[in-house]
Amino acid sequence: MNRPKIFLWSALFFSLAVAVFISPFASSRPDGLEKVAETHGFSEKGETAAWRFPVFPDYEWKSARNPFVNAAVAGGSGTLLAGLAAWILGKLLSKRNRAR
């Protein structure tokens, strides 16, 4: 494997490791906007989501008993999905594809 490929695979595995092993320990405090909404009394406005079919609502797989497993599965899947989607988008826009 050449250097660019090694870099890409390492970066992907690093991202995946972050999502699977570190994200379950992320702070569960409200984020900046959520905190402002709580402090200034408009957080209840955002309680009903328009989209009803999230696979991993709130970054959680709901099927395992262990919350760390739930967070790891959701995080890992999302990371791979984001990578795959952007790769497909790049592929569709690439030179070779346009030349065809």
Partner: peptide, 25 residues
Amino acid sequence: GDPNEKEVPLMGVCAAFIFAAQMLN
């Protein structure tokens, strides 16, 4: 027509990294 063979996988890995890093509150 801009991304070449080098940049396409980089777009994917960049998205994966950003997604993962955004989870680390």
